[in-house]
């Protein structure tokens, strides 16, 4: 085990979390990510028993989750396993695929509502140009948020994840925080 101390995307030693009325936003610093891309002629893999979803979709299973990122390409999530060589594990499970480590390419923010779907929908309306009507639980897409590219995942009626470039973590946090604080004030 290395003795180098990791730093969160927001530059701290502990993941940041803050509440804004019914909305709680928390940095998910322990989330491992690996990109998996299908190679020519290969069948669609089922890495570690996880079925890979179609365009615009996300689903969880076996302690992991996956969302579609492009034709023949998916992002595999493994909560709590950021310290591991998760990409290595995925490559072992799907050796015929192209696997790339992405854990520290991104910062992940988990947004939870204590008042059902409404606060999540209000937040979405202020952040991204996604029609919430077509973005129910199990939806995932990449879109623009304040000039940045982010993945947005509807994990549940009352839970949302926003995953963006790690280097822009501060700007993404600022956007989420400002929108949530304003909704709280309304």
């Amino acid at each position: 085990m290395t003795d180098l101390a990791p730093m969160t995307a927001l530059g701290g030693s502990l993941a940041r979390a803050q509440s804004f009325g019914a909305l709680a936003i928390a940095e998910n610093a322990d989330l491992a990510l690996a990109s998996l891309a299908q190679r020519r002629g290969a069948a669609q893999p089922v890495p570690m028993g996880l079925a890979l979803p179609g365009p615009g979709l996300w689903h969880a299973g076996n302690g992991m989750a996956a969302f579609w990122t492009g034709p023949g390409q998916w992002m595999i999530e493994a909560p709590g396993r950021a310290a591991e060589d998760f990409a290595g594990a995925v490559k072992q499970a799907a050796p015929e695929c192209s696997v790339t480590e992405q854990t520290d390419a991104f910062v992940a923010f988990e947004i939870a509502s204590s008042a059902g779907a409404a606060p999540i929908l209000s937040l979405l309306a202020k952040l991204v140009n996604i029609d919430a009507a077509g973005f129910g639980p199990g939806s995932a897409t990449r879109t623009g948020l304040e000039h940045m590219s982010v993945f947005v995942i509807r994990r549940a009626e009352d839970r949302l994840a926003v995953i963006g470039m790690r280097s822009a973590a501060g700007s993404i946090w600022h956007a989420l925080e400002s929108a949530a604080a304003r909704l709280q004030g309304e």
Binding site: A37, G72, T100, T103, D104, A105
Partner: peptide, 14 residues
Amino acid sequence: ELDVQLISTTDAWA
């Protein structure tokens, strides 16, 4: 027709 896959890793590696 080429078998090649790309992904950005600019932020992933310090």
